[in-house]
Design a protein around this nucleic acid. Structure first.
Lengths: 207, 207
DNA sequence: CTGTAATCTACCCAATTGGGTAGTGCTTTA
DNA sequence: TAAAGCACTACCCAATTGGGTAGATTACAG
């Protein structure tokens, strides 16, 4: 029983090349190729594929949006993006949309087959550069804004939704002191409201 | 010129096995092995290694903390975690600490060498399961809390630090309407302050 | 057609927050 | 020893926000 693969790619020669490679394997089979998402989505249930190779730049709805729609109907679908985009925003959008993997189009046949296998093994095949980007996204660079220890304490409490009174209680200092620290925090973060301070602290990973 | 590798692993037979494998290659060389981070950090500059294989469970400071410290001194160090932990918190902590890769200890010699090569190619070698976890972390499951379109508008504006007055101006509705929507939002999110609402919206990916 | 949900507006009052000024005391660094 | 930074407290006032009540309009589904 071969795993069914659907290719969604508007570059027909490339699509055909993928299909040819995949059909040489003895555990994968391309059961349909489309040059747009709309058609592929219509035939979703009919094709009943387990893996989708998805281009991003497509006529009509793009690959990221298409991924969302396919995952909505077929949550178990494994969708591997195959694209030239290495732009971080596109990569993260695709992953957020539900892509299981992300390959750049420079891949060779062997890599493609490896990726398919990794995919059905429950993995997340990624090109080297993509893996690096993804891992890099966890490595938050330390902010250049420096808060004192006490300021961090106060801001953390604030971010948890505490009022000045609660913060004062929790930190065993007076409410006035909370205000004092907040004022300094606002200056350091260049904001002038509690929400902005918390949002900026989130963004800058200050807590 | 071989790439210098340092192994930090308190399981000596395992450490020796890694070293043996690595030393069979013609582009990597284990220049030192340690059974704790402290010693490795002391000898950082002396060893001048480009790749570190780091265990997580170590006597004294653990591998995650050790990774932070090494990256602080040697930002260019490539640190690959090699560990039995597949617990998501540990994985993400390690990546946040600056690890370039994350392998589980079930790896075979070939995988180890592949990982080293991928690492010096600027990649992020990961075991299949880890890659899946990392990619999965992007796929935020949609919240079950449902806000109306207008409520989302208001909450988004609020999260950007706007006051009720600004939001009213931006959305061309009265300040009272902002209050009205906020009240409903607070009920739906089960909070009772602007910060809590914004934080919860962030957490639940409501915007 | 009727009810329900969403959107919109208004008014009132109490509580919270933001901004300013003015001090004290402690520790670290120059 | 002086200066600088951090932590702390107090008081005042204006602005903002939270909670309650009351009502209007539109749109959509049963």
């Amino acid at each position: 029983m071969k795993h069914k693969v659907v290719i969604i790619e508007d570059n027909i020669p490339l699509s055909d090349a993928f299909a040819e490679v995949i059909n040489t394997t003895n555990n994968f089979q391309v059961i349909n190729s489309y040059d747009n998402c709309e058609e592929a989505i219509e035939r979703l249930k009919f094709d009943n594929a387990s893996i989708f190779l998805m281009d991003i730049e497509l006529p009509g709805i793009n690959g990221v949006e298409g991924t969302k729609q396919i995952k909505k109907i077929f949550p178990k679908a494994n969708i591997i993006m195959v694209t030239v985009y290495e732009n971080s925003e596109v990569v993260f959008d695709a992953l957020c949309a539900g892509a299981s993997g992300y390959l750049t189009k420079s891949l060779n046949p062997e890599e493609l087959i490896d990726a398919l296998n990794e995919c059905i093994d429950g993995g997340a095949p990624m090109s080297i550069k993509i893996a690096k980007m993804v891992v890099g996204s966890f490595q938050k660079k330390p902010s250049k804004i420096e808060l004192s220890k006490r300021e961090k304490d106060v801001l953390l409490q604030l971010s948890e939704g505490n009022s000045y009174d609660s913060i004062a209680e929790n930190l065993f200092i007076s409410k006035n002191t909370i205000k004092f620290h907040l004022k300094n925090i606002y200056i350091k973060l260049q904001v002038n409201s509690n929400i902005e301070a918390v949002q900026k602290a989130n963004k800058e990973n200050l807590l």
